[in-house]
Amino acid sequence: MDSRELRECAAVALSVLDLTNLKDDCTSAEIEDLCARATSPLGHTAAICIWPRFIAQARAILGTESPVRIATVVNFPSGDLDVATVVAETRAALADGADEIDLVIPYRAFMAGDEAAVERMIAAVRAEIAAPALLKTILETGELKSASLVSRASQIAIAGGADFIKTSTGKVSVNATLEAADLMLQEIRASGRKVGFKPAGGISTVKDASLYFRHASAIMGEDWVMPSTFRFGASGLFNDIQAIMTGEKATGQKADSQTSSY
């Protein structure tokens, strides 16, 4: 990839980035900085992704007309909360100004064979979210560990009305992988529905991002990668995007390698 292609890739990556801070010790000052970076002179990100407790602050900073959407997480990161609690989390987040809900499916129950638990959770949260707000379902693919489970979880989420299917919370040892991306994108294509894809966790350079762009384009078509159908969930990726777009020397370093049993 030459420097021109790298800059073009960086610009696309910026436009589909969910700039994320889900650190346990995240502060209000860091949210203020996140909002500033999301609306930098380089262009704006698709969204920020933050803890529910910071939604009202971010909405006050960004206002109601900002092109940057506010995403938050529910049933996060364990996936083990009961449906009523997750519904309450979702309602509160929407009331505070969230535009997008990233829901962790009850993946441990799913791994134990309880598909109905996943269906109930998605249905209950989906019922709370009216357009233009979006539901993104986190499958935690690195914990599912098998291709059949990743594919089946994708099918359930798509059938349940998810607007996006997302790989990971970023809180486990294996997060986004190209193997998981392939399985999830294949299920999106097979469904015939307009469902987006969000790889999250471990994507830290534009060169990393380009691999996912190429994979998505090969499966879904050249014009498919856009904010309405593709997002990155990342915190460090913005730094490499910025370095490339401003002409500074980018690190060019790969994210830590992750292994998969798919």
Rank of each mutant, 00 (worst) to 15 (best):
F197S: 10
P199T: 00
V172K: 12
K249W: 02
T229E: 02
S217W: 14
A181F: 11
S204R: 15
M245S: 09
G233D: 02
T205Y: 06
A180W: 10
K194S: 14
A209V: 09
D182G: 11
F197G: 03
A190Y: 02
K198I: 05
A209F: 11
T229L: 09
G201Q: 04
S173F: 11
R189K: 14
V206Q: 12
D182L: 15
G196E: 04
G221W: 09
G247D: 03
F232V: 05
S204G: 13
F238C: 02
L211P: 11
P227S: 00
D223V: 05
T246S: 10
I219R: 12
S204E: 14
F238Q: 00
D223M: 02
L178H: 08
H215R: 14
N239V: 13
I188F: 03
A209K: 13
A250G: 08
A180C: 12
M245G: 03
M245E: 10
E248C: 01
A176F: 05
A209Y: 06
T205D: 01
G247E: 03
K194L: 10
K198Y: 08
A180L: 07
I241L: 11
V195K: 06
W224R: 04
M226N: 15
P199L: 00
E179V: 07
D223I: 07
T229Y: 00
T205H: 06
I188C: 02
H215W: 05
G192K: 01
A243E: 04
L211M: 15
G201D: 10
R231A: 10
V206Y: 09
M245C: 03
K194V: 14
E179H: 04
A234Q: 08
F197N: 07
I241Y: 11
G247Y: 08
A234W: 03
T246I: 00
T205C: 14
L183A: 05
A190G: 01
Q186L: 13
D240S: 09
D182I: 07
I188L: 01
L185D: 06
S173Y: 08
K194E: 12
A181Q: 09
L178N: 03
G236R: 13
E179P: 01
A216T: 10
G233N: 04
L211K: 15
F238G: 00
W224Q: 00
A243C: 11
D223E: 13
R214D: 14
D223F: 02
G236D: 12
